[in-house]
Write a protein that binds this DNA or RNA. Structure first.
Length: 407
DNA sequence: GTAGATGATTCTCG
DNA sequence: CGAGAATCATCTAC
C-alpha cells in the first residue's frame, strides 16, 4: 500500500501542460476506471464530437468555443491514462495490446493530408490563403467575394491557431508525462526488476494514447474547416450577382453577337478576364441569357436597343478615333474611304452607328427596328437558322471577342 | 413578405 | 462535351 500511496502522490502532482491536477482525484468521476478505458468518458467525447458535427446553424465563434471545450474535455480524457497507468504499473496486471506495433493509420493520414491541404497543418502560408484562393477560384468569385474570403482566411487562421496551440499542449503533456513515467519506473526498479523493454513498451502505450487524442483533435479540426468551407465558399449558397460592369460587358458581347451568341473558348476566357469571373460562369451566363432571351424576346427588346445603341456609339467613337488617326498619319488622304466605310469591327453595327448618329434620337424606332430586323432574321433560334444575318458578325469571325475602344 | 431577376445545377439530347 | 431546358436557391427592389 505504501507503494500505491507514493505513486498516487507522484502522479497527482503531474503538471499537464499547465493543468495541474492536484491529488489526482480532483478529476471528474471517471465512469469506468475499473480496469476499462472509461467508456463513459468515451461517451462524453462522442457527445461532444456529435455536437461539433451538428453546429451548422451556430456561429463559427461558437464552433471555435466548442473546439476549446472539446480540447478541455480531451485533457480530462487524458487523465484516464493515469488510471490505466496505475493498472499497468502494478505487477501482475494485464497489458492488453501493449505488444501491438501500430501500423500507419490510414484515417490519421487522411486527416493529416486534409489539414495540410487546407493550410491548417504544415508551414504557415498566410493562414491557408492558398486553400482560400483555390476555393475562391472554384467558387468563381474574385473581387466581389474578396471580403468574404478575407473573412474566411481570418476564421481559418483562428482554427489554425487553436489547432496548433492544442497540438503543442498535447505534445508537451505527452513528453512531460513520459518523463514522469520514466522517473517513476526508475524509482520502481528499486523494489522490482524493470527491463528496458518494459520501459519501452510503457512509452509506446503512452504515445499511442496521446496519438489517439491527437487524432480526435485533428478530426474535430477537419470538421470545423468543413463547416467553415461550406458556409463561406459554397457557390450556390453564396450566389452573388455579377458586378454591373461585368453584366454590361457580357450584355455588350451578347447583343453585338446577337446573330450568333456563342463565344468561343478564347472569347470566353477574354470575357472572364474582363469581368473577373470564371470561364464556366461566362458559359452559364450565356446559356441562361440565350434561353431567357429566346423565351421572351419582347421583354429584352429594350435592353437590346440599349446595347445596340451603345455599341453604335462605341463604334462611332472608334471610327472618329480611326479617322483622326489616319488624318494624323496621312494628312494627304483625308476621309479616303467612301461614306461610312470605316474598317471597323461589326460592319453590321456600323449601319446602326450611322443610323443612330443621323437619326440623333436613339434608342428610338430606327435602332429598335434594326435590332428587331436582326432578331427577326434569326427568329431567336440561332443554331437552326443558317441565317444570312450571321454574316454580320462573321466579319470578325465567330467567337472573337468584341474589342471596342471602350475597354 | 413577396415577386421577379439571376446565377448555378442537373438532366437530356445530339 | 456543349447546348437547351427545367429547376433550384439566392438576391434585390418594392
Amino acid at each position: 500500500m505504501d507503494d500505491q500511496a507514493r505513486i498516487m502522490q507522484s502522479i497527482g502532482g503531474v503538471s499537464l501542460a499547465g493543468h495541474s491536477v492536484q491529488g489526482g482525484m480532483a478529476l471528474p468521476p471517471p465512469h469506468g476506471h475499473d480496469g476499462t478505458d472509461g467508456d463513459g468518458r468515451k461517451q462524453d467525447i462522442g457527445d461532444i464530437l456529435h455536437q461539433i458535427m451538428t453546429i451548422t446553424d451556430q456561429s463559427l465563434d461558437e464552433a471555435q468555443a466548442k473546439l476549446h471545450e472539446f480540447s478541455l474535455h480531451l485533457l480530462v480524457y487524458f487523465l484516464n491514462i493515469i488510471v490505466m497507468f496505475l493498472i499497468f504499473v502494478f505487477p501482475g496486471l494485464s497489458i492488453r495490446g501493449a505488444q501491438e506495433e501500430d501500423p500507419p493509420d490510414p484515417q490519421l493520414m487522411r486527416l493529416d493530408n486534409m489539414l495540410l491541404a487546407e493550410g491548417v497543418a504544415g508551414p504557415e502560408k498566410g493562414g491557408g490563403s492558398a486553400a482560400a484562393a483555390a476555393a475562391a477560384a472554384a467558387s468563381g468569385g474574385a473581387a466581389d467575394n474578396s471580403i468574404e474570403h478575407s473573412d474566411y482566411r481570418a476564421k481559418l487562421t483562428q482554427i489554425r491557431q487553436i489547432y496548433h496551440t492544442e497540438l503543442e499542449k498535447y505534445e508537451q503533456a505527452c513528453n512531460e508525462f513520459t518523463t514522469h513515467v520514466m522517473n517513476l519506473l526508475r524509482e520502481q526498479s528499486r523494489t522490482r526488476p524493470i527491463s528496458p523493454k518494459e520501459i519501452e513498451r510503457m512509452v509506446g502505450i503512452i504515445h499511442r494514447k496521446f496519438s489517439s487524442i491527437q487524432m480526435q483533435l485533428k478530426q474535430s479540426t477537419c470538421e470545423a474547416v468543413m463547416i467553415l468551407r461550406s458556409r463561406f465558399l459554397d457557390a450556390r449558397r453564396k450566389r452573388r450577382n455579377f458586378s454591373k460592369q461585368a453584366t454590361e460587358i457580357l450584355n455588350e458581347y451578347f447583343y453585338s453577337h446577337l446573330s450568333n451568341p456563342y463565344p468561343s473558348e478564347e472569347a470566353k476566357e477574354e470575357l472572364a478576364k474582363k469581368c473577373s469571373i470564371t470561364v464556366s460562369q461566362v458559359s452559364n451566363w450565356f446559356g441562361n441569357k440565350r434561353i431567357r432571351y429566346k423565351k421572351n424576346i419582347g421583354k429584352f427588346q429594350e435592353e437590346a436597343n440599349l446595347y445596340a445603341a451603345k455599341t453604335a456609339v462605341n463604334a462611332a467613337h472608334a471610327a472618329a478615333a480611326a479617322v483622326q488617326n489616319s488624318q494624323a498619319n496621312s494628312p494627304t488622304t483625308p476621309n479616303s474611304g467612301s461614306s461610312g466605310s470605316f474598317s471597323l469591327p461589326h460592319s453590321g453595327h456600323m449601319f446602326l452607328s450611322m443610323q443612330s448618329l443621323n437619326g440623333a434620337s436613339y434608342p428610338g424606332a430606327q435602332v429598335g427596328a434594326i435590332v428587331q430586323a436582326q432578331v427577326g432574321a434569326t427568329n431567336g433560334g440561332w443554331q437552326d437558322v443558317p441565317t444570312p444575318s450571321s454574316v454580320i458578325s462573321a466579319t470578325e469571325g465567330p467567337g472573337s471577342v468584341h474589342s471596342d475602344t471602350s475597354d
